[in-house]
């Protein structure tokens, strides 16, 4: 199956579809009196890049947090591949194959890039304290096998030159890329990217967009992408969901959403929409 490449941007491409991998059904999240999400529903299809956009405070990150188990919706359901994961702990949801990045980079600063990515392999490894400590046969073979997997990712993301650098010492753009690598190392069933291009310059944004498209080409992880830059969203996503004040106000192809009067009023104000 051929996936969308940068040239046929924004269009539905072959391979997207089938049964939804992730279903968000009528999710409500309240923080005291603040209604962060009010009955948001969406489906994430296989191999697609679904962008979630919306003004500040629309509830985009809250939605991702509730999928990855940081918050638990009530009422509402989150279903991954037919399994209800609404009330699972974050670690358990990760074990089921949900990987994510964070809006403010959350790398392990005191560890090298290599070690950061190897932490991403944690769930694919088995060695416990005894095997690790003896570092004999089993544990050593496992370490080497996963090292090879991680090295391929390092190659893919073009960060070979910094593999032994401490993550905390890297420039911001590279940290974002390492964080993407750490999520990819988990070989997820669903990938959640929380503003992977926030605070980047044009060049870095283009690099990151290229990586996201390449990842989609190579592995086809169904991806939810939160992004502010409308240009990027229009270019790389298959579908777009628009949130405003915790509610979904539009959904559809990038072209369709761009012309929606509700979306225009949410972004530009009432008069512009009229």
């Amino acid at each position: 199956m051929v996936q969308s490449s940068a040239t046929e941007t924004g269009a539905h491409a072959g391979g997207v579809g089938g049964r939804p991998k992730l279903q968000v059904q009528g999710v409500h999240i309240n923080f005291g009196g603040v209604k962060a999400l009010q009955g948001v529903s969406l489906d994430l299809l296989d191999r697609e890049i679904l962008a979630i956009i919306g003004p500040n405070g629309a509830g985009k990150t809250t939605l991702i947090n509730s999928v990855s188990g940081v918050y638990h919706p009530s009422p509402g359901r989150i279903v991954l591949d037919g399994e209800n994961i609404t009330y699972h702990s974050p670690a358990r949801i990760a074990a089921l194959g949900v990987a994510r990045t964070f809006q403010n980079v959350a790398l392990f600063k005191g560890m090298t890039v290599l070690e950061n990515l190897l932490v991403g392999r944690h769930l694919h490894m088995r060695s416990g304290a005894l095997a690790s400590g003896l570092y004999w046969q089993l544990a050593q073979r496992e370490e080497i096998r996963h090292r090879a997997v991680v090295e391929r990712l390092i190659d893919f993301l073009e960060i070979t030159h910094i593999r032994n650098a401490l993550a905390g010492t890297l420039p911001y753009g590279l940290q974002k890329r390492v964080e993407l690598g750490r999520a990819l190392a988990m070989e997820p069933r669903v990938l959640l990217l929380d503003e992977p291009m926030a605070g980047m310059n044009m060049e870095e944004k283009e690099d990151m967009a290229r990586f996201i498209l390449d990842v989609n080409d190579e592995w086809g992880f169904p991806t939810i992408l939160i992004e502010h830059d409308m240009g990027v969203v229009m270019d790389i996503s298959n579908r777009v969901v628009v949130l405003d004040h915790g509610e979904k106000i539009a959904e559809g192809s990038p072209g369709h959403v761009r012309g929606d009067p509700l979306v225009i009023s949410a972004y530009l104000g009432e008069e512009a929409a009229a």
Binding site: S68, V70, S89, P90, A91, A94, A95, A99, R100, F102, A106, L107, F108, K109, G110, M111, E115, L118, V119, G120, H122, L123, M125, S127, G128, A129, S132, G133, L134, Y135, A139, E142, E143, R182, M186
Partner: peptide
């Protein structure tokens, strides 16, 4: 050996960013 392999990395991940560690499945 312990600190250079899976267990040690999990510990350091918890030390550096416990929320992210949990999201990695630790």
């Amino acid at each position: 050996n312990l600190v250079r392999s899976r267990v040690g990395r999990a510990w350091m991940a918890i030390r550096d960013r416990d929320v992210a560690a949990e999201i990695m499945g630790i």
